[in-house]
Each structure stands twice: as structure tokens, then as C-alpha cells.
Write a protein that binds this DNA or RNA. Structure first.
Lengths: 245, 245
DNA sequence: CGCGATTTGTGCACCTCTTCACAAGCGCCT
DNA sequence: AGGCGCTTGTGAAGAGGTGCACAAATCGCG
């Protein structure tokens, strides 16, 4: 979904870290591999086969090998992958070697939960600022962080060198917040508001809409119900769908 | 990602609602179209062209037309689509004509937020039960609903005719909860715990992992930084990525 | 009544992603 | 040292999704 750099372009074969230009589908799975690898490391595994890792990560082993091969050859034939080495490599590719500062805008219901979610800190992200447009919320302390007014964004962005913005506001406010984030130089946004954001080129937006996930499930539920109601109700169906599909 | 029904199979061409067998990518976009259509309806639009709807939904107009064509021909050439009619059709396909009952397991930080999220009710879902394994949380009232112990799931599932289960527990508890949900007949699960669930065939699982989204953004941020640091830093890049990619 | 403007529905070519299947490589055991 | 079993890395085929471009269809107006 990103670049349009021609595949055959020279590419300045320098000594840089390779800049591998991974397929988007692979990038979306790397975090899952990373989580699985951490779990394996915690249980004392030093190496793991593609088959083993694929099981823990919930994917096909061939797909996993192809994904990893895009990073380079970090496996040993006949043995498998060194868990620690692979963790380092993936973290390096994902840019997680440095802790990234996140600004969270919108401290309502969902924002509160996100502010308190410990899954961020444990995976290389630091919620560095909480912001809200509602003056009655400004000053509130959540998880050791004081909510500041969204207009302080320019100052906060510099002070904390914000890398990623998270929007957890109601939909009508989201576009304005996105504009403010872009204005202070944020180029990666995670949007929980149920609306489409328009941003300039070069800014990445990812969207998470909880209701949409339920609606997709509803469709499959509906379809399954229709099938079993049908006389010719054949055997069903699938297992485990990743969200990135 | 679902069926393996052979395309050439007879299929019992009955008078049933067609059972259109939509592409998965289309299904994932229909909820977004639905949201966009509701927005248009609220602002008084009676009809909309594919171009107009595509803009609001943040997709290509050709893709939108192809998606809608899978539902049947509900547009009028030279005019566009009737907003109300299209809403009805999509809701029907997604199985949203009846309100679906959702059981939410895990009333921690995230569970609280989900329980209070009004985006569910407004889009055809009713949180019918809150459950938790922690006795100290049982009895608490959230948003007019009392938290019950997860062991009451069998009774609750019948009483409320639960259609979808949402798991918002810590990762170590998630698999056990999934098993319990499956045991009481739930065949659609939305999993917020950062782990892979294994479920029997016929059960759909969708996963939402907030940290993964941030990590994907981190990758792009990292790549952008590397590019601009490079002397040959060409023009950049893209806009707006849907999560379903 | 016919014509032009407009918009849908879709055939087609392209591209990405997935999966299979297997050769190449590595370690261990004899 | 040699052979054997295991596992990686990858070529090739297939499946699925995307976007262009255009024919078909509808409306409004003269």
C-alpha cells in the first residue's frame, strides 16, 4: 500500500540496512510472530522450527518461512530459528529498538481504557501525553498522567517528541484532531473514531472500528444460520480469521 | 476464508435469498459503506452516486460498484443508488435486521470501555451480559448491567440467546473463555486478548490487537525515517490504509 | 420523440498474496 | 568420513483482489 518505487530501479545498493521493502501482508504479520516468539522465549525455548512458530502464531508454516525470508536468512536448516536472534531482527525491522512516544487524544470511555492498557508499554510504546478538548476533563490524572488540553499539542509534540497519534474521540471531532496532529508533524495515526480521515500524502492512517468487527461476525453468523436452515446444509467452514484479511 | 464448497456444486438453486457467497474483502467493506450511507441519510441525501459514496467511505468508486454489484442490482444508471434501499439491503445481507445479543467476558480496563461504548447499540448490537472470573468484580454494575460470574455462562447464553462472544480478558485466560463460549454454542468470537485462539471448525474468530496496530505504524514510521535520511530520498508515499488490508 | 449527459455494471489485465512441493543445506550418528 | 533425517528457503502455480475503461441503461430537455 505504500511505495511506487519501480522494482527494477537501481536503488543505490549502499551499505544501508538493506531497506527490504517488505510486502504489506508480511508487515502485518510480523507483530504476531514477535508476540509468539516472546511467548516461546518466556517458556525457555532457544530455537523453534517454522512449523512450531507457525502453530503458535496461528499461520501456515510456508507463509511464515516466506515472510521471514524477506528479512534475510536467519534460520538454520535442519535446526530452525534462534528465538532471541529472530526477536532482535523483527524488532529492528519494525523500528521497535527505540521506545516510541504516543499521544492519545480523547479521554472518554475508550480513551481511558487505552490509557490504562499495559499492553502498550510492554511492547515498546510509551503513552507520553493524554489530551482532550473538553475543559472539564483537563487536569484529570489517569495512570500517572495528567490530561492536557488538545490545544497544547504543539508544545507537547516537541517536548515528548511524539511519534504516533491515537484518536479516540467521537467521530465528529476526529478530522479536526487529525489535522492538528498532522500540523505538528505526526505522520502515523491510529484512528478509533468511526469515520474516514483525510490526510496529506506521507501520513499513514490505520483504523480500528469495533462495531465493524461485530458486523463482519454478524454476516458469518447470518450465513451459517441460513446454511443450516437449508436442507442441503453441507459441512461447514473455517477457523480463525486474522483481522488483517 | 470461509467455505470450501466446490464452485461447481449443484447448490440446490432454491428460492432462498440467493446466498450470494460474497468475497471476504467485500464483506469487510460493507459495514463501512453502511456507516457512510447512514451519514448521508442523516444529512438528507436520498440518492448517491458510486463516486459520492466512495468518497465518504474512503474507497475507489469502481471497487465500490463491484462490491455492490455482488449484492444485486440496486442502483439506477444515470441516477445512482437509493440511500434508504441500499441501507436495507446491506443490513439484510449482514444479518443486522435482528438485534444480536453480545456477551462480553472480562470486565477489566478494556472491558469497561467496551461495555460503555455506545457505538454497539447504535449499530444493531446489544450487550446482553457482562461476565468475569474475578469474584471481586461480580456484582458490579456497569451501564445498567450487573457483572455475573463466567460460570453462569450456560444459563446466560440461553436466557439472552447470545449470538456473539467478546473476549476482553488477559491473554492467559482467553483460551479457557473461548472454550466455554464454544461449549454453550457460540459460533462467533471477537478476541481482544493478544493470543491465538484455537476453536473447532465452524466457529469464526476475529482478533483485534491494539499493540499490533501500533507496531505496524511503527514500521512505516521507521521506514519513512530511513528514506528521508537517505540521500536518494525520493518522493513519498501513501495515504489512508484500511485495517482490513 | 430523439439526443446528450450521466452513471451503473462488468470484462479484462495486472498485481499481490497464498500454497505446494522440492532442492539445498545443516547437524548428528555411526 | 559418510550417510541420513530434518528444516529452511524458494520457484512456480493458483487464487483472489484491484482498477481501468467501456458498453449498456436511464433521465431530462429541447
Amino acid at each position: 500500500m505504500s511505495q511506487h518505487r519501480h522494482p527494477g530501479a537501481p536503488g543505490r545498493a549502499g551499505a544501508v540496512p538493506a531497506l527490504p521493502d517488505l510486502p504489506e501482508a508480511t508487515v502485518a504479520r510480523l507483530p504476531e510472530y514477535l508476540r509468539a516468539l516472546h511467548a516461546l522465549a518466556d517458556t525457555g525455548h532457544e530455537t523453534v522450527s517454522s512449523e512450531g512458530l507457525a502453530n503458535v502464531a496461528g499461520v501456515n508454516s510456508a507463509k511464515l518461512r516466506k515472510d521471514l525470508s524477506h528479512l534475510g536468512s536467519y534460520g538454520t536448516r535442519g535446526v530452525g530459528y534462534d528465538v532471541t536472534l529472530l526477536i532482535e531482527q523483527i524488532e529492528s525491522v519494525l523500528g521497535l529498538t527505540q521506545c516510541r512516544a504516543v499521544a492519545l487524544v480523547g479521554v472518554g470511555n475508550l480513551g481511558h481504557a487505552l490509557a490504562g492498557y499495559d499492553g502498550f508499554a510492554s511492547r515498546g510504546f510509551r503513552i507520553a501525553a493524554l489530551l482532550d478538548a473538553d475543559p472539564s476533563r483537563v487536569g484529570e490524572e489517569i495512570n500517572g498522567l495528567v490530561v492536557r488540553h488538545v490545544d497544547e499539542l504543539p508544545r507537547v509534540a516537541v517536548e515528548e517528541s511524539i511519534s504516533i497519534g491515537v484518536i479516540a474521540t467521537p467521530a465528529p471531532a476526529a478530522q479536526a484532531v487529525a489535522d492538528q496532529l498532522v500540523a505538528v508533524g505526526v505522520t502515523s495515526i491510529l484512528n478509533f473514531a468511526p469515520c474516514v480521515l483525510s490526510v496529506p500524502e506521507g501520513v499513514d492512517v490505520r483504523k480500528v472500528d469495533l462495531a465493524i468487527e461485530l458486523q463482519i461476525l454478524s454476516f458469518h453468523e447470518h450465513r451459517k444460520a441460513s446454511l443450516t436452515a437449508l436442507p442441503g446444509g453441507l459441512a461447514a467452514t473455517d477457523t480463525q480469521e486474522a483481522i488483517g484479511t
